[in-house]
């Protein structure tokens, strides 16, 4: 089970809800992923077209926990404002703190992220910060009381996969709260690797929504996360420099 604050989840895949080709594909992909936590963004509404379909309104909210993000924020204050707006919906108390510090790489601003996390924890939010893969920063966030740490695998939407497995494993080994690898996942192998490294979960969006067949990819990611987790729990063999035969060397008949 994945435990975040007071909540427990059987799925370790968290799915983003942005950029799907259609609402129907999105619904099917969400279903196929088995995800129980879905991320959302908070944006201005087009008040002149109330009939516009909204994915959230078509969702069975008893089956999912919402994880709104603070995307768009560049300062701690902006992130706190977005988080408060999200909470005022009455639908959620978890927040993905996302404070971007660089427009080109979309990498998080560590100082503003830390400040925002502190302010939101004081207000009683369940706080999951998106952070860079820095073990010291992860520890600082954990010490503040964050309920999970979400280091990026590589830049958001880049699909580059895990570019620094060593740093991620430092964070995973030292954390006492769940570590969810967020951002940069490209394919199922990346998700499986994150889980094999010992991550407690994986959060991805574009890898599914941007795939040629998002529904099939959602299922692939579900299986990859499950396989990676099982592999981690099973304990993989150490890497050796030379071969070691699988078949016995005794009792060979001489031809």
């Amino acid at each position: 089970m994945l435990k975040i604050g007071p909540y427990e989840f059987s799925s370790r895949l968290l799915l983003g809800t942005g950029k799907y080709p259609s609402l129907d594909v999105q619904k099917e992909a969400v279903e196929a992923s088995g995800a129980e936590i879905l991320t959302f963004a908070v944006r201005r509404m087009n008040i002149f077209s109330p009939e516009q379909p909204n994915f959230l309104e078509q969702l069975d909210l008893s089956k999912y926990k919402l994880l709104p993000n603070t995307a768009g924020a560049k300062t701690a204050e902006e992130a706190v404002r977005i988080a408060r707006l999200a909470k005022a919906s009455g639908l959620c108390d978890m927040i993905k703190v996302e404070v971007i510090g660089c427009d080109k790489t979309l990498l998080p601003d560590p100082i503003e992220t830390l400040k925002a996390a502190e302010m939101l924890l004081e207000e009683g939010f369940i706080v999951l910060p998106y952070t860079s893969d820095d073990v010291v920063l992860a520890k600082r966030l954990e010490e503040l009381g964050c309920h999970a740490i979400m280091p990026g695998a590589s830049p958001i939407g880049s699909g580059q996969g895990i570019i620094n497995p060593l740093h991620l494993s430092f964070i995973i080994e030292q954390a006492n709260v769940p570590v969810i690898v967020d951002a940069g996942i490209g394919g199922p192998a990346d998700a499986a690797l994150a889980m094999e490294l010992g991550a407690d979960g994986v959060l991805l969006n574009t890898a599914v929504s941007g795939a040629a067949d998002p529904v099939k990819m959602a299922k692939a990611m579900k299986l990859a996360v499950e396989a990676g987790r099982l592999g981690y729990e099973a304990g993989r063999i150490p890497k050796k420099r030379y071969a070691s035969a699988s078949s016995p060397t005794e009792g060979m008949s001489v031809v």
Binding site: M45, L85, S89, A183
Partner: peptide, 10 residues
């Protein structure tokens, strides 16, 4: 007045 809602996002 700001009127906001949830939209798709990661």
């Amino acid at each position: 007045v700001e009127i906001v809602h949830f939209v798709g996002g990661g």
